[in-house]
Simulated assay, not measured.
Amino acid sequence: MKPSTLEEAESALDRKKHTMLCAKRGSKKKKKVLYNAHYSEDFDAEEMVNYERVALFFPKPSHRRPLVMVGPHSIGRHELRRRLLESNKERFAAAVPHTSRSRRDDETDGVHYHFVARHAFEADIVLHRFVEHGEYEKQYYGTSLSSIRQLVREVKTCVLNLMPQALKLLKASDLKPYVIFIAPPCIEKLKILRQKMGMCTKDDDLRFTIEEGRQIEENFGHYFDKVIVNSDINRAYAETLREMERIELEPQWVPYVWMHRS
């Protein structure tokens, strides 16, 4: 069955990866992918920042910073995002993705997807208008900067689950994203977490998640605003919610250049 939303495609990818990890031993096997995210070469090379001028950003009731959650696969980001979106639909929202596939009879343009022609989608890729994009069954799917901006204009917090490579493009935008790294706990606590979530608990899989988290933090940690260790999904959700409430009330240090972007 084809995924009807970008979130379902991402969840299907996680399920498929864990099915394969549980079925086959060995940490170096190449995994098949259901949904591939792609990035422009201009944003692939990571540059560590030794010094960055910052300024104090005072929250405004008319502007909510998008929440970006990154972390290793199957660490609970999708569940955290789902809980946030369901907790308060007036406060949290998901960006409407774009796709090049045809609209189905039960779908509304601008609600389920933004339906665009393939050549228009490809032009937007060249112009770096997508935070992430991928191809599934010869059709493009992606999350655009314009969809995120639309939620900012509606005074809603856009909740995003992204690959860490997308952070460089987001930081260069006018969106002022708030990035939370959902980190894995120690292997014993990770096994308990996976058991509670009904997921694979083989040692090779657990070690793979911990190592993936370590690599993400090493390569992209300079983009993180907050690290939340997910050893318990309820506690991680409560901590994420508290953090979002805090940044709506308290000033935060942000890159100086952000204060001079419209």
Rank of each mutant, 00 (worst) to 15 (best):
L175N: 09
N88L: 01
T19N: 11
I228M: 05
P3A: 09
Q195S: 13
G134V: 03
D204S: 12
D106L: 05
Y178G: 01
L13Y: 12
R82W: 00
E239N: 09
E137K: 12
L241W: 11
R103Q: 13
V33C: 07
R194S: 02
R25D: 10
Y51A: 04
F224L: 05
A236W: 09
L80E: 08
E211Q: 13
T209Y: 02
V227R: 13
V159E: 01
S262G: 09
P3Q: 01
L127M: 14
H18N: 11
F208N: 10
T143V: 15
D105H: 13
L84H: 09
I216A: 03
N230S: 14
P97I: 07
A236D: 08
G26R: 09
R77N: 15
L190Y: 07
R81T: 15
G76T: 12
I228N: 05
R214P: 05
Y136F: 14
R214W: 08
Q252T: 10
E47H: 15
S74Y: 01
A23G: 06
K30P: 04
F220D: 06
N219G: 05
L127C: 13
D205A: 14
E218H: 11
K29V: 13
A45P: 09
K196V: 07
H128M: 03
A117D: 10
L34D: 00
R129F: 02
S40R: 12
H112R: 02
E154K: 06
G71M: 04
P177V: 03
I187E: 11
